[in-house]
């Protein structure tokens, strides 16, 4: 028996919004410790690695490990039916071929349930390898999303240059060129708004705007984003 409850459906809506443009389908691996999802995107260029710890749920029970292959477009259809503040309960029986999503309104007067067929997806054991990155930048997630959006107008790729002093984002194309520099925050009054750089050695790397803009769909999940960079390894 698997059962996971969130007091606000909004949390899972945000998680789904963060991944559904990259993945058509994915396996949610449920165990006692929580739900894991690892999948390469449809073009096999990036990896989505998601961990929803059991203690992040308001109620969590998983008697036996369970792999639930889901079509994310169908899951999105279901999640769209929930109000943000509805309580969400996901349920599946052991060896079941369906999962149930139940939404309860705050006043308990509306209860809806949706059953979705599970899929058998190829299981691959994927993950982001432990890496000592040359530069790790922590910055406001909204600011990063804004920079990616703004620079996408000027080119198909963004160059990120990181030194101890700051981080520079650049793009260029037919319309001209654009540079955005962020200095490391001198005092950390508000942690959420700070830019913090841990640098072993400077790096200059180029990334496709298309993917950066897909990654920033996760922006509503957290105030800060961490960019970990080294030459010749993925961001």
């Amino acid at each position: 028996m698997f059962e996971a409850r969130l007091n606000a459906s909004n949390v899972l809506k945000k998680v789904l919004d963060a991944i559904k443009d990259l993945l058509n389908e994915a396996t949610f691996d449920c165990s006692d410790s929580g739900i894991q999802l690892q999948a390469m995107d449809n073009s096999h260029v990036s990896l989505v690695s998601l961990s929803l710890r059991s203690d992040g749920f308001d109620k969590y029970r998983c008697d036996r490990n369970l792999s639930m292959g889901m079509n994310l477009a169908n899951m999105a259809k279901i999640m769209k039916c929930a109000n943000n503040d509805d309580t969400l309960t996901m349920k599946a029986q052991d060896n079941a071929d369906t999962v149930t999503f139940m939404f309860e309104s705050q006043n308990q007067e509306k209860v809806s349930d949706y059953e979705m067929k599970l899929m058998n997806l190829d299981q691959e054991h994927l993950g982001i390898p432990e890496t000592d990155y040359a530069c790790v930048v922590r910055m406001p997630a909204m600011e990063f999303a804004r920079i990616c959006r703004d620079l996408s107008q000027f080119g198909e790729s963004v160059v990120i240059s990181c030194t101890k002093e700051g981080v520079k984002f650049s793009a260029s194309g037919d319309a001209g060129s654009a540079n955005i520099k962020l200095a490391q925050t001198s005092t950390i009054d508000k942690e959420d708004e700070s830019v913090i750089i841990e640098m072993q050695e400077p790096v200059t790397l180029t990334f496709a705007c298309r993917y950066l803009n897909s990654f920033t769909k996760a922006t509503p999940l957290c105030n800060q984003v961490q960019l970990s960079m080294s030459a010749d390894v993925p961001l």
């Binding site: 390469m40 096999h44 990036s46 990896l47 691959e124 054991h125 994927l126 390898p129 993925p234």
Partner: peptide, 14 residues
């Protein structure tokens, strides 16, 4: 294909 293969290997796919 080459970059995709390299990335798949990097992330641990067979």
């Amino acid at each position: 294909g080459t970059i995709q293969n390299w990335l798949a290997g990097y992330f641990g796919a067979e």
